[in-house]
């Protein structure tokens, strides 16, 4: 171990190298590393946010889907109810109409029956009159015996 001026030379070199490293190597590399760290953590946070947003959106979608389904169900229910009502109403009105027609028809029939009966009665009274004429062999004064005849007709 013999010491010589190499000691001084190495000391100076060492100082210069450390100075250079401190000035031109460490700060830019460290800055770049820190910046990249920040960028990466930012990116991770953004990804997290995106994930959260996606989940929120999915929850919203399923919510509105459920709402829509419910609404559709309600509408269908209402429509069915309404349809039933319409059918019922139609039935009722049809029944009323039928009743009305039946009543009218019955009245018509009654009327015709009465008319026919009247007609027959008249016919019968004429025939009876003719018969009586025949029996009496003489002409019956219709006018003179009108009240008798009417009474007869009423009896038939």
């Amino acid at each position: 171990m013999n010491f010589n001026a190499t000691l001084i030379g190495q000391t100076i070199t060492f100082i210069v190298f450390v100075w250079f490293c401190m000035k031109y190597i460490w700060p830019p590399l460290m800055a770049a590393l820190e910046e990249r760290n920040a960028r990466i953590s930012e990116g991770l946070a953004a990804a997290q946010r995106g994930q959260q947003d996606l989940e929120d959106a999915q929850a919203k979608v399923s919510d509105s889907l459920k709402d829509a389904k419910q609404q559709a169900q309600e509408i269908i229910n209402q429509a069915q109810k309404r349809a039933n009502e319409i059918v019922d109403e139609a039935k009722d009105s049809a029944r009323d109409e039928a009743d009305k027609i039946k009543v009218a028809a019955t009245a018509d029939i009654d009327q015709q029956v009465t008319a026919a009966r009247e007609h027959l009665r008249k016919e019968v009274s004429v025939i009876a009159l003719a018969g009586a004429e025949q029996i009496l062999k003489r002409e019956v004064d219709a006018k003179a015996h009108a009240d008798v005849l009417d009474e007869l007709v009423a009896q038939i």
């Binding site: 070199t13 190298f17 590399l29």
Partner: peptide
């Protein structure tokens, strides 16, 4: 000693300086 020590030191500084510039 001086030659190799300075040479190796310069190699170190050169490699790291290049990386620092490209950082």
């Amino acid at each position: 000693s001086m030659l190799f020590s300075v040479g190796l030191g310069c190699l170190f500084l050169w490699i790291f300086r290049r990386a620092a510039k490209k950082a």
